[in-house]
Design a protein around this nucleic acid. Structure first.
Lengths: 295, 295
DNA sequence: CGCTGGCCTTAGCAACGCTTACGGCTGGAG
DNA sequence: CTCCAGCCGTAAGCGTTGCTAAGGCCAGCG
């Protein structure tokens, strides 16, 4: 039988992306982790990871084993919680994973309300960019994951977890204050083809979405500035450097910014925001889901 | 995190019914097992088993943990198989659990055919009286379980496993050859109320079923001989000691026995025979299910 | 071209887990 | 009633496991 501790180690290494990173998280020396992984590979009879100069990546066999490892670790933690619940002990921790823009807008109010009602529960927040994080829910490193899917991006396999649509969030077009195009009545992507755009680097969901919109409209856009951070994008637009699509919630937080908010008539993207948790969520998770859900 | 090895140990002890028994199966000394269990109890923070003078029984917490332990052990073995399959290695073992009468009639032909086509696969057979055995499938000690349910007996929780009805098997009434009641055209339970009956001890499904039939017919039957072994029952009836219900398949195997086979007009019991296996059975299991299924 | 950051190896030490030996307990046989 | 058998627990000893520490190798970067 495979050793569960070593599988847990594999999962940790996969999430951290390097042996050293995992070792630090677990308060071990890299040597210890390396040795255990070597033994796991010997047990399995096949290499599980490619040793790259910067960190490691999983082999196909490693990938296959990882998903099992995550469910096994999750099962072990589930077992532990079941017993704790049976002994009348309240769960003392709730870990929520979010993507950055939700972490700024959607989550804080819910977290604050939760903390008020459950001062004894240790709340933890983790930043995770989609499509990551599903594995961490499987392994119960995460109790609740807030994730999203940009149009055009594939929806990850839920792997036996419960996933529910929290809301669908529109993107708005933002331009520098006083930008000439802001006065146009019917604004189109084509009309903005000559502008400098601000978006993520190629491959980032954000950018993939923008490229697909441009394709659909039959234009090519110039992305002059690449950042995935919407606060940076806002600042760049404010500074008059370009135009961008941003999620509506990002705008809700900014004060009377010096930007113009419009919609493109031929491109009205929206991203779906999902909640992901275990099949049978605990009381605390259910409550947090309640708080996050629109009234 | 709980230790998976200790959980596996707990499952083994629960199945064996004693620490000493589990230790023998695992080729350890009882002391080692005892110490590991003590540590598991310390980890959990609650006693998991009652130490009786003859073996051990699980506490409620132990029961709860047991079912988790079984799924965890099963997951570990599933992970191992997945990797083996990925490496192109064929599974080399198939373990089937049956109840005694199926082991004599239903299974041998299927097993023989299987062995002929897969000489390299190590076949193992385990005797298990229902309702036991589900846990062993969960923990993958068993690849396939053949179990049954007598009328009136509850059907165990399948616990995430696949259970399918293989067949429904009638019971026949058997009497000693030349028994005067054998000549009656319409034989009823009431007419046989005065006979000596042969059945299992109180509590055995066999017996529960008989008692319920008697209740339904409004008579009380005298069980003079108690045995759960249908071969013994046959021998007793042959010897003229009493009458009994036996499954049809048991009769198929006996030659021209000196018994009379009839049906009771007011009591026609049947037991359901089920196959139980994991959600996604491997090739070998699927093939064995095919062989067992009626053409 | 040296520096940094990541990984691997080797050597040594602490902790874990097993075995052996012994004692307490209960239920059945003589 | 006594004794024995079977079961479980504890204590001491020892081998193995798994950790740390220290040193070497390789790639990317200033």
């Amino acid at each position: 039988m495979l050793d569960a501790h070593r599988l847990a180690l594999l999962a940790e290494v996969a999430h951290a992306g390097s042996i050293a990173g995992a070792a630090q998280r677990l308060a071990f020396t890299p040597s210890a982790v390396s040795q255990q992984l070597a033994k796991l590979e010997r047990d399995v009879g096949a290499p599980l990871l490619h040793r790259n100069p910067r960190g490691v990546t999983l082999t196909p066999v490693g990938e296959a084993l990882l998903s099992h490892a995550e469910t096994i670790v999750g099962e072990l933690r589930t077992a532990e919680r079941t017993v704790r619940a049976l002994l009348g002990e309240e769960p003392a921790q709730l870990t929520v994973g979010t993507f950055a823009s939700a972490g700024m807008t959607l989550v804080p109010a819910a977290l604050a309300g939760f903390r008020r009602d459950h001062p004894a529960v240790a709340l933890r927040l983790l930043d995770l960019e989609p499509p990551d994080g599903y594995g961490l829910v499987s392994s119960r490193d995460l109790d609740l994951l807030i994730t999203h899917r940009y149009p055009g991006a594939p929806l990850p396999d839920p792997r036996g977890l419960t996933r529910s649509l929290l809301r669908s969030e529109r993107f708005r077009l933002i331009l520098p204050e006083g930008h000439p195009k802001a006065r146009v009545r019917r604004l189109t992507l084509r009309a903005l083809a000559g502008e400098d755009w601000i978006s993520g680097s190629p491959g980032v969901p954000n950018r993939v979405c923008l490229d697909e919109l441009a394709d659909a409209a039959g234009v090519t856009l110039t992305v002059a500035y690449e950042t995935r951070d919407y606060q940076v994008i806002l600042a760049l637009v404010e500074a008059g450097l370009g135009v961008a699509f941003v999620p509506e919630s990002v705008l809700a937080r900014v004060g009377p910014a010096r930007i113009e908010v419009r919609d493109a008539a031929d491109a009205r993207p929206a991203r779906d925001v999902f909640l992901v948790h275990h099949r049978r969520p605990g009381k605390l998770v259910t409550e947090m889901v309640e708080r996050l859900s629109p009234r």
